[in-house]
Design a protein around this nucleic acid. Structure first.
Lengths: 222, 222
DNA sequence: CTACGGTGTGGACCGGCGGTCCGCTTGGTG
DNA sequence: CACCAAGCGGACCGCCGGTCCACACCGTAG
């Protein structure tokens, strides 16, 4: 397993592939985008495509990981999204960040969800987010089953679920957000819940689709 | 479009296909079961298979619909699962029924979830269950966003989610059930929630996998 | 019981998929 | 510049879901 420097053409092709894949996946209906198309759009051969990304799933994961980087960076920034601050607020800010991320990347995430059993829950980014949710829930709602609740909250922001609620059921993103926050609010302190949008919606993350950016993919001599 | 009686051999083959498919799907990893295999296992040609079930998704749906019949029948029985009775109890009994059904048929439901975008939410049985959940939630928790909550509760019993919690996270079915009930409990009346299993677990449905049963498919020589 | 029409059958066949292979090209190095 | 491994690309593979059609067999009319 060579981890060393990548040849210039290889790095260039990796970029081309990731960019082309991201664009095609965003266009629509990820299921219908074939590896052939991606290779062609990226201007590389199929062999090259599969040399960089061993299979379909790992390509999708790579595209998504890059998108997730923005969110992960913010997690290490200042509160409320970053560590520290009041537990309940930290939890709600986190949920907002997650929902915004999912919303911005929903078609891609749907692709990931479809790409194999359990990859949605089992992939590293998800595990990180669930763990973080669990931590914040445990802080905000001691005495409850934080682990279970974290999984449910994370399930509640699954791309296909959110997409279905929005597209097929006509729920606004704000309504979904409000519901999510209500779900996360400790039973003890929950107000009557005004069924509208009482939540602050603070940080909002704004990962958006992002123009890919590269920022030194091959650090090499790190 | 002939809707009348099916020829004897056609009916026999339909049964054979449904039975074989159900068995293969239950064996493991639904994604890996091909239509070819099903046809072979059922002892029919591929043409026959596709004549009865226009595509993969509709075959899966047909198998599942048959399984769901048991649950739907109980819904029209006596309370708490059937109509009438105290709202909160009706809601919890319903969730139990749903969870048990999902548990008993999880591999099949996972197949359905994978068979296309939104088919999990959009198929008739799901819509029915979600609507029923909404009704019971609205009765048990007036003033809240019952529609959203119903979808979240239904999402919380998605086969892959439950399966992941059980298999990968080692949560017992009882723990999952307890979490589900806590989620459904109105904020106002929720006790400290003992993180263990305080729920009654009343009706339990017991749909199980059911040995398919045929009930006189090929009368012929009566 | 026989003749017959059309529904039902089955497996060869199809286009395209994800993935592999390998002879040729090209970037990096001394 | 010479060298050669890393990289490349597209022909190729096995198999998938799905289609097609010559033929079989069911059910009925006589």
């Amino acid at each position: 397993m060579k981890v060393g420097p990548e040849r210039a053409d290889a790095a260039r092709n990796r970029e081309a592939i990731l960019t082309a894949a991201a664009e095609l996946f965003d266009r629509a209906d990820v299921e219908t985008v074939s590896m052939n198309e991606i290779a062609e759009a990226a201007g590389v051969g199929k062999g090259t495509l599969f040399r960089r990304f061993s299979d379909r799933g790992s390509l999708i994961e790579a595209v998504l990981t890059r998108r997730a980087a923005a969110l992960l960076r913010q997690e290490q920034g200042p509160p409320p999204l970053g560590p520290g601050g009041e537990p309940a607020e930290a939890l709600h800010a986190y949920l907002d960040g997650l929902l915004d991320f999912v919303w911005a990347n929903r078609s891609l995430i749907r692709a990931l969800e479809q790409s194999g059993p359990n990859v949605f829950y089992a992939n590293p980014a998800s595990r990180h987010w669930i763990a973080e949710l669990t931590r914040r829930l445990a802080a905000a709602r001691p005495g409850e089953d934080a682990d279970y609740l974290a999984h449910i909250l994370y399930t509640a922001v699954r791309a296909d679920a959110v997409d279905y609620l929005y597209t097929a059921r006509g729920m606004s993103l704000d309504r979904i957000r409000a519901g999510l926050h209500a779900l996360a609010t400790p039973a003890a302190t929950v107000p009557p819940v005004a069924a509208t949008v009482p939540v602050p919606v603070p940080v909002a993350v704004a990962v958006a689709v992002a123009p890919a950016v590269t920022t030194a993919v091959v650090p090499r001599g790190g």
